[in-house]
Write a protein that binds this DNA or RNA. Structure first.
Lengths: 233, 233
DNA sequence: TCAACCAGGATTGTCGACAATAGATGATTC
DNA sequence: GAATCATCTATTGTCGACAATCCTGGTTGA
């Protein structure tokens, strides 16, 4: 699910890649901080070779920024970049929904329906809320992207962007106060996909992503304002 | 323009990255072929360390496929993958056009207009045709993506997808028999951007990409058919 | 004859050491 | 006292060698 594991016949570089990514995404290594190769090599008990390979891959995933002869830093999160991320997601997930409506197998559509119903029960019970619901949300989006049958789309979204999105969630501490609305939107999207209406599915998905984005914007603005009054008091 | 150069204070791995990418994109190293680290290290006169780093980056750019303990292969081009690429481009470049219409500076819009007019003159003269026009096409799309002001979009399209697109062009030997139509579509897109009509710009850009895709599909089908008769004759 | 098994060779993965570069520290000069 | 420059240290970039793994071909057994 959370896709942590390095594959079976994995190499050291693979393992370090996973571990380091987790540490960065979850904020254990703070955003913007410098990564020292000797330090990390010791921490993971590997030599610098595999470590550098892992870091290079993290760089390609847009989690690290590399400067020649200087070193690597964890990317700094900013609200601008977060909004950029939402714009890209809107475009790509919209396309994914359209394709999924056209090509997803009937079985997969049924599973998707079941998933949304399960989420509905979870939200109604209002118990596991926040974090768990978040994972559920990701699961929903994952399935549609995979259902698109477009491997390049899957790569871009699942291998790169979703990790970044998770990083923002972890570090900006976003709990989902939008679960109820989001769930409704999910249900509509599933209906469109089940009805094989690609155009509608895309439109709904794009609106859904924009709504998430607007919610985040609102929260950021509120935070900003709170910080402002705090500073001036 | 073609963005070949490794930056000034570049490292060996950077240089090898650029050279190797060029060799792969232009088909000097054939698609699907295996890359031997010792052989390549000798060819570029570097040790395997920087070479492996370059290869890892090529892998992240989706130009290589890596299997642990086995080695790296150049990706194999297929028509399915090409169509996938067009779908992703449609989504992303559509979004780019929308954002460009909203945020591109007036100066940049003027330059874009001038570019399209220049292309118009080139096509009318019908001299440099094919290759040059192709580069011109890429230039047009580049500018719009950059004009979107969305750095993540720029990265995905310019750093990865466009190289792949160029690889298909080089190796499927696609000459542009669509220059005239494409040019008209470009002109419409520029008008929409200049009119700050984001929705229209997106719609036009998506249609433009779909038209390119349809053209490629037609050609592939024709090739397929030709190969079929050839085989049965 | 065919399948499974077992070296042999070659390639990839990993490591530690050396070279080159950037940034910091302190001395010198205006 | 501040700015500049030289030196010095720590980090990164690169290399060659060793260890682990996979593919190939031949061999043996049923």
């Amino acid at each position: 699910m959370g896709a942590p594991a390095a594959a079976a016949g994995a190499t050291i570089a693979d393992r370090v890649f996973d571990q380091l990514r987790r540490a960065i995404v979850e904020g254990e290594i703070p955003a913007g901080s410098k990564l020292s190769e000797p330090v990390l090599a010791e921490r993971f008990a590997v030599s610098r070779g595999p470590l550098r390979e892992a870091m290079r891959r993290l760089e390609s995933s847009n989690l690290l920024e590399w400067r020649a002869n200087v070193g690597a830093r964890v990317v700094t999160l900013s609200s601008e970049r977060l909004l950029e991320l939402y714009q890209v997601r809107e475009a790509l997930e919209g396309m994914a929904a359209r394709l999924a409506a056209e090509r997803m197998s009937d079985g997969a559509v049924e599973e998707l329906k079941a998933l949304v119903q399960q989420h509905g029960r979870d939200v109604a019970r209002e118990c596991w809320q926040a974090y768990f619901q978040q994972e559920g949300d990701l699961d929903f989006h994952y399935r549609i992207v995979i259902g698109s049958g477009n491997l390049r789309l899957v790569r871009i979204l699942c291998d790169d962007l979703y990790h970044l999105a998770r990083m923002y969630r972890c570090q900006f501490g976003m709990k989902s106060d939008r679960a109820r609305d989001a769930l409704k939107e999910h249900a509509l999207i599933v209906d469109a996909i089940a009805g094989r209406d690609g155009e509608l599915a895309e439109w709904l998905m794009r609106r859904h992503v924009r709504a998430s984005c607007a919610n985040v914007k609102r929260r950021l603005a509120a935070e900003q304002a709170a910080a402002g009054t705090e500073a001036s008091s």
